[in-house]
Design a protein around this nucleic acid. Sequence first.
DNA 1: CGCAGCTTTGAGAATCCTCAACTATTGTGG
DNA 2: CCACAATAGTTGAGGATTCTCAAAGCTGCG
Lengths: 242, 242
Amino acid sequence: MSRPLARYLNRVESRSILSDEERGALLAIDAPLKRFNARWDLVRPGDDTNFACLVEEGLVGRAEVFAGGSRNTTALYIPGDMADLHSVAVPRAAWVITALTDCAIYQVPHEALRKVASRYPGVGLALWRDTIADASIMSKWISVISRKDTRARIAHLLCEFSIRMGAAMGGGRSTFDLPLTHEQLSEVVGATTVHLGRIFKSLRDAGIVTTDRRRVTVLDRDQLARIAQFDSEYLLLDPTPT
Amino acid sequence: MSRPLARYLNRVESRSILSDEERGALLAIDAPLKRFNARWDLVRPGDDTNFACLVEEGLVGRAEVFAGGSRNTTALYIPGDMADLHSVAVPRAAWVITALTDCAIYQVPHEALRKVASRYPGVGLALWRDTIADASIMSKWISVISRKDTRARIAHLLCEFSIRMGAAMGGGRSTFDLPLTHEQLSEVVGATTVHLGRIFKSLRDAGIVTTDRRRVTVLDRDQLARIAQFDSEYLLLDPTPT
DNA sequence: CGCAGCTTTGAGAATCCTCAACTATTGTGG
DNA sequence: CCACAATAGTTGAGGATTCTCAAAGCTGCG
């Protein structure tokens, strides 16, 4: 008796308070586990899906695709995240969901999620809330990239990532995997790989972080937060009663 | 018998197909109409609201506030938009909702919306879908500001605005009000007022738009769309069956 | 008329990009 | 385990975009 949504339930419960019944209804949902190689597109623009992608292992990104094919990543999803929960309400994708690393994905049927959401309005609200957390992160990120330089953007990304990884894995990690190439990070941060590399170097030189084979260690958390003017409020990590 | 949500119903029905019953349930909701002066904050970070702000008249913005008080606008809301529909699921705001111009707002009780949503799952899905459209706009905007210059950002904003105004008011308008100061626009576009002014001038000089007392006329829609690489797909304006 | 807020213009500086070459790391087949 | 190829990261230099600071025109309104 495997319970595909076990990890996602943790995620949901970091933001919503559920009853035993609601919890049980989510855990009862079954979903096939699939594996994908890095760079594989899980969902492409125009696709009409009937399942949502729950990340079990690896890193998944959401990106906008421009005419010409260049991409810009607008969300990062870590294990426990439902990468395109949106698709439950809007099955036709306008963006790309991509495997940024090798990953394992539960394909959770929309049907099942909708059924649980309509039977238990509290779950519906919790799922809605989850997409709002995603929106809140985007809103914050818009303000960061439209007003801050690359240094602050990277700092903000690292602060956010370390907290999100911490919430998912337990404990605020100062060392965490960030298994993305500079190329991929540049698509997140909105800078060229060259400039990104320079700024990373300057952060290392300043003794604020170290990087080793795509593993990041934050040496000076306070200064990193100061550079980013980071305030974690927007991550909506206080559970709200349903 | 006034029906505060009449206009919002149009908005919802541009994205979702509702039954007569569901339509009636939304129209039956009552809400007080309030007026606010430009620059008034309707909701501030940390506020716990029990109503959502339905824009009846005027322009409303959502902004992130940095330590120090500087703001960055991450969404514009026009008449017919529910400015902080999010608050139905997440009552505690992490951002500011501001009156960008003098405006009239229906304060729609969360209670009523939640009740309708839980009684009619189709309405719940439609509301959820509405916040996803908001998210889709943000995702697109992230890609625009992280990869395009100010010229393209402005072009994109104008394209989007003209379509959204058109959908709300009927017919794709090539002339529309954009009653924002350069100061306010710069907080949307992520540029200084100085630079924004220069680029606007260059767009005027190129014969692409004209501006007259905060009224914009698009003279060359094709070229504007080309500059912005605009594709309206992300606005999610095809109704999805519930 | 005169003030207050908004917009335009100018000039120098900072950030970031582009192109290009070079080094380091990772992966693969022998 | 090595050699080699492919991918990823670093460094340098010149140029484009955008910012900052500062001052001069506008516009609307009391």
